[in-house]
Design a protein around this nucleic acid. Structure first.
Lengths: 249, 249
DNA sequence: CGACGTATTGACTCGGCTCAAAACCTGTGG
DNA sequence: CCACAGGTTTTGAGCCGAGTCAATACGTCG
């Protein structure tokens, strides 16, 4: 760990890692090794963390801020895979395929991560059954989510996708009217949902007209969840609240 | 195993399972249990194998024929996740999430499968490190592929998607001109690529005009792979031959 | 205040969907 | 062998959603 660690990290890294779903049941000995070998790092907004096609040396755990994972095509377009924040992990799959990153990772605002050496992680996976099992769970969940992502891209229009996204931001246990803040700027949300910023703007306008939501800057108020859900979920195979399966922002 | 088994199955089921990537390094004792507890089953074209939302009791290994995995929305549309054939496995992830199938599975032509009890599989995963590792590999690969799928849906147009699909059907080692047969009818390919049959037809026509491929019914001739690749891959982040990462039909 | 990044709006184009009709293919029974 | 029915594939005409390009509004930070 480098010197900047103590200033920003939860004071007990080991405790922190153990709190993540992926590491709750990891053997203590491995957790210690992970903690000892891991590196804390901060990135400025816009700074690149990982390049597509590059060899991956680390498994990344995001502590704070937002990290965008995306792929760039030969003719310069980009497809956003996901945008991650606190406690989410990336880079962990490359070691199982070919060590090559299938995406770029960039900080879209000031952010901090813990890097665990991929070789160490790989060794742990091979010997620690519990860790392997936790990772299987996480990957399965991911696969599920991506099927949904594909469904949503094929079948839902822009307004519905936005509505669906807003619903995911609503914590189910909060009483109506739900008041929420968009996690980052609209340009990035648009990209995350696979549409252009202009389309996002127009589609959100339509969503405001067709449902009872109120939008002001990044503040969104959802007076009745049902109203939003009945609009957004009609083109989807899930009924709200989507069985809590969908957790990514 | 039921009585129809011997007529259609590879005569040694155990040997067959062991030949699959997922099971090559499985412990012999588990393989025996799998073989003993598994069931052979045949489905007619159009017959449903698994319903979305249903509890999953089996892990399915496709032996022959084609199985379509898809999701249906509340307003009746369907999104095709994948179309599988010989040696491909499905249903194996539900046990790690919530036992509920996230998709429908239907035979799109006469097909045969081996069903392994999900509970047995689950037990094996938890105790057999090698099996868990093999499954991690397979899931990682899947995740990679699905990122690509998402990319292709967002960024490639209909003709490019078809071109990309044809390239995946070309075995790299075959000398040009490559002659290939579409694995099933165009309606299903269209659905698999997330477009309507009419769009498929028109887009294929355009592809014939813009490249040098010849199409006659299900027969396709690709005189020069480069020609097709330079058209289809320009909107993709991979350069042909896509690093052999993409294996699904 | 001006300057820059973010967001919205307008006018236009184009790709893919819809609905409907025609062409083609394949198998069946007379 | 032909006629017919069924499914698949292609074609046509029109529509609509999302992308493009360009201009304008908004916000906030210097």
């Amino acid at each position: 760990m480098n010197s900047t660690l103590n200033s920003t990290l939860p004071n007990d890294v080991q405790q922190y890692l153990k709190s993540l779903p992926l590491f709750t049941s990891i053997a203590a000995s491995w957790l210690e090794k992970f903690t000892a070998a891991s590196i804390f790092q901060a990135y400025d907004s816009g700074e690149s963390i990982l390049l597509q096609g590059e060899k991956i040396d680390w498994v990344y755990v995001v502590l704070s801020g937002w990290v965008k994972l995306y792929r760039t095509t030969q003719d310069g377009n980009e497809a956003v895979i996901d945008i991650l924040t606190g406690s989410q992990v990336f880079g962990e799959t490359a070691m199982l395929t070919d060590d090559i990153s299938p995406f770029n990772a960039v900080a879209i605002e000031q952010c901090t991560v813990i890097k665990i050496p991929v070789t160490l992680f790989h060794d742990a996976i091979k010997s620690d059954t519990k860790l392997a099992y936790a990772m299987l769970k996480s990957l399965s969940k991911f696969r599920d989510q991506q099927s949904r992502e594909i469904e949503s891209l094929t079948l839902q229009n822009a307004s519905e996708r936005i509505g669906c996204y807003l619903l995911r931001l609503c914590r189910v246990d909060v009483p109506e009217p739900v008041s929420l803040t968009l996690p980052f700027d609209k340009t990035h949300i648009a990209a995350r949902l696979g549409m252009k910023a202009e389309t996002f703007s127009r589609a959100l306008k339509k969503l405001r007209q067709e449902t009872d939501i109120k939008v002001e800057g990044r503040q969104v108020i959802v007076p009745t969840i049902d109203c939003l859900a009945s609009f957004a979920c009609k083109g989807c195979s899930n009924e709200y609240p989507c069985d809590d399966i969908i957790t990514t922002v």
